[in-house]
Amino acid sequence: MHITIRLFAGLAEVMGTSSLSFNVEETSITAGRLKELLSASYPDAASQISVSLVAIDHEYAPEDSDIPEKAEIALIPPVSGGEASSIYESSPDGLYEVTNQVLLAEDILNKVLDTNHGASLLFVGTTREMTGEQHTTALFYEAYIPMAISKLQEIGKEVQERWNARCAITHRLGLVGLKEASVIIAVSSPHRDTCYEASRYAIEKLKQMVPIWKQDINEKGHIWKGFEGQTEGSSKMEP
């Protein structure tokens, strides 16, 4: 059985590719078994593989899930939460986007304003300089774009169903400098209490489930966030 696997962030870095062609002798294989075989074949990446999730056709797959032939397979590192050309993709309704362009808060807020809603909020996540004693100079974001859009839509649907609120989310990719916005979430609802709850829920779910990774860039080098046990400076920039 031949499987093509998409790789991201620190996992792609340690394995030296973003798309891996992998042959297995079994005629059928589960997501968990695939991780076992990959770990045996790539021992230097085994720790990252073990904490990663398998996605089948843009959906997270339990380890006992069978992998169909010709399915789109991706290995998703824990999420954290190229810029040479313009990147922009969105859901069909335009409410959920990823882009490498500067984020415009007013444009995103306008997507959720409603004549029947008395409250609206913007959450703006920006790059901060200090994390403990670590001095950050910029962040770099990468995404599994089709799945990221799908998961952002899921969050928006939950916000609508639970709080009767409208939601729009745009996440930036590529290099994001200090004080620049990496993510903007706009929410509107009939009342302010539900608006606050829905906004907090949206950012917490985004950080848990949307396959977007960030790389912290500082004077010592750079490191992908998300892998437990990875130490600062484990991936150095060239001088």
Rank of each mutant, 00 (worst) to 15 (best):
D114C: 10
G177L: 15
V183S: 10
M237H: 10
T136W: 01
Q215I: 03
S19P: 05
A31Y: 03
I145P: 01
I185Q: 03
S65G: 04
A9H: 01
E158I: 11
V51I: 12
W163R: 01
L11I: 11
I5A: 07
H191N: 13
C195P: 02
I217E: 04
P239Y: 12
T137V: 14
G177Y: 14
R166E: 11
L11G: 05
S39T: 07
T131R: 13
R200C: 09
Q134R: 15
L113F: 00
K111D: 04
V98N: 03
E228P: 14
A71K: 08
L37V: 05
P78G: 10
L121G: 07
L178M: 07
H171V: 09
E161W: 06
M1P: 07
A198M: 08
D57V: 10
E228V: 07
R200E: 13
V24E: 07
T137W: 00
A9Q: 00
R172V: 08
S18C: 07
M237E: 12
T131H: 15
I56V: 15
E204T: 09
P211N: 06
F140V: 13
V14N: 05
G233W: 03
E25H: 09
E129A: 11
I145A: 10
I56A: 12
L75F: 02
L139I: 07
V24P: 00
V79T: 15
S199D: 08
G221L: 02
R200D: 12
S90T: 13
S85V: 09
S50Q: 15
A61V: 05
E232D: 12
L121E: 04
A61H: 04
A148G: 09
G174A: 11
R200Q: 13
G16M: 04
E142F: 05
L20I: 02
S19Q: 14
I56M: 11
R128T: 13
F140T: 08
R192V: 09
A40L: 14
G94V: 03
E129N: 13
D64K: 10
V124N: 14
S47L: 15
S150M: 14
H117N: 14
H135Y: 10
E13A: 12
H191I: 10
P62L: 00
S85N: 11
S39C: 09
L11T: 06
E89Y: 12
L7H: 00
V112Q: 02
N110C: 09
V176T: 12
I108G: 01
L178N: 11
A40V: 13
E180C: 10
I169C: 04
V187S: 05
L104A: 14
Y196P: 01
T231S: 15
S120I: 01
A45H: 05
I149D: 02
L20D: 03
Y144S: 08
M237Q: 13
G10N: 09
F140C: 06
Q160S: 14
E36G: 08
L20H: 01
R166I: 00
G229S: 01
V183I: 15
T17C: 13
A74W: 00
D114E: 10
I76F: 03
G156W: 01
E232Q: 14
A168R: 04
S47D: 15
L11F: 07
A12C: 05
T30R: 05
V79F: 03
N100I: 08
Y42N: 08
I185S: 02
G177P: 00
K179D: 15
E238Y: 08
L139D: 04
G125E: 05
